[in-house]
Each structure stands twice: as structure tokens, then as C-alpha cells.
Design a protein around this nucleic acid. Sequence first.
DNA 1: ATAACATATTAATAATCCCTAATATAAGGA
DNA 2: TCCTTATATTAGGGATTATTAATATGTTAT
Lengths: 110, 110
Amino acid sequence: MLTADLDTKVKLIHGFSNKTRLQILESIKEDEKTVSQIVTDIGASQSSISQHLACLKDCGIIIGRQQGKYIYYALRNQNMRDLLSMFDTVLEDVGENVASCENHIEGCDV
Amino acid sequence: MLTADLDTKVKLIHGFSNKTRLQILESIKEDEKTVSQIVTDIGASQSSISQHLACLKDCGIIIGRQQGKYIYYALRNQNMRDLLSMFDTVLEDVGENVASCENHIEGCDV
DNA sequence: ATAACATATTAATAATCCCTAATATAAGGA
DNA sequence: TCCTTATATTAGGGATTATTAATATGTTAT
């Protein structure tokens, strides 16, 4: 794999490796939602949510469509949904390990 | 989803969101390898590789078995392989977006 | 045009992560 | 045992990331 591709892949995965972003993705997994609906759902600040939405959108993980003063965000496609489900599948295998892992290095800190 | 589970999921995904760790996983995707083989493969420092291996192992993403003075590491199971493949699939959808994304917030910086 | 609501942007700080360098531990062979 | 090779651990600092607070932009309705 080319280095450029690898860097890109890391960037992509980074999109999923944050609590607020995962909450956003879970929140819109089934149906599109407006920013304020997401803010209410998650309970984080509007600013934080907005920044993460911009991030996810720029990466193409989600898409946004404006309708009046609202902007609806949704997952880009079914592959994103499948990837999110795959995380759950893998979590069934390793959830206990991960939960008890106290390694200080990031990701382990995963 | 419970908060604890969500935190765990973030930790899990973090395991995949680093260049060196991804390189390790690619390196052992098909066959188990010793630490020194991985070090040679990737060209990062032995210390760094060792720390990441510990991290991945503690999370249960990989497993290690000792044979003499060597330790062979391998992916935990087929689900891990499937998840890695899923990343590639999604990357086909959004690779261009991600590569050109210059958002300063992490993950976008994803 | 102004007010009210919805969303985005900016800047700055606090927290986290990952690398390097040095050292430690463990195993096998001479 | 001593030396060599293989791997792990620790500490520290530089870089990156996420949050908050404040402000800006854009849309609709009055």
C-alpha cells in the first residue's frame, strides 16, 4: 500500500475514533437529523457538534442537505452503516479486553 | 448504547487509527510474524513497534505466541481481517474527500 | 429592516498521544 | 557463565486533538 493511501486511511479511521463523532454517527445511523436534533440527542455543545459535523462532512462520511434554516445530516451510504455495524461485531469479540486495557500509549489508551 | 460501551468502542477504534498500528496490522494480516520481521517490514523503531504491539495485544486485536526467543504476532480472528477490508471498501468511497480534507479539528484532520 | 432562531467559525487552553532514547528482561548458544 | 540476539518497559518532550467561549453568518418571519 502506498504511503499516501495509508495516511488517508488513518485519517479516515480517525473520523470514527472519537466519542462525540461516534455519537453523532449513531444518532443519524437510521435517519437524517438536523444539527439541533443531534445536539439535543447527544447533549454536547452546539459548537463542538458543529465542528465534528464539518469534520465528518469534509471526509465524506456524512452528507448534509439544507432545507430552509435547517441542515439535515445523514450517513453517506450503506457502506458507512456496514462499517459501524462491523465495529459492533468486533466489539463483541474484544470488548472485555479493550475495556480493561490500561496501556498508556494511545489507542491502548486504545 | 451505554456510555461505557461507547467509551470502549472509541478505545477499540483508536487501536486502528494510527499509521504504525495500521502498518503492523497490514504486515500480519495474512501470516503471523515475529517482532523483528515486523520491524524490518515497517522500518519504525523497535521500541515504537513493541509499544504498539503491546497496545494491540492488550486490546485483543492481535495475539502473540512465544516460540523460543521469538514472539509471533497474528490477527486475533477473521473478524479483524474483515474489519480491515471494510476500511478499504469505505476508503474507495471517500478516499478523495479524506485526502483533501484539511479541517483542523482532529479526525478531520480526520 | 429587525428580531429570532439555526448553524458555523475562530481562538485559546487543557488534555492526550506518539516518538525517541535509554534501559531492562528474557532466551539461546558458545 | 557470558555474550548475543530478541523483545519489553520507562520517562520525557514535542506534536496533535478536543473542548469551551465568544462571535459570525445565514435563514425565516414579522
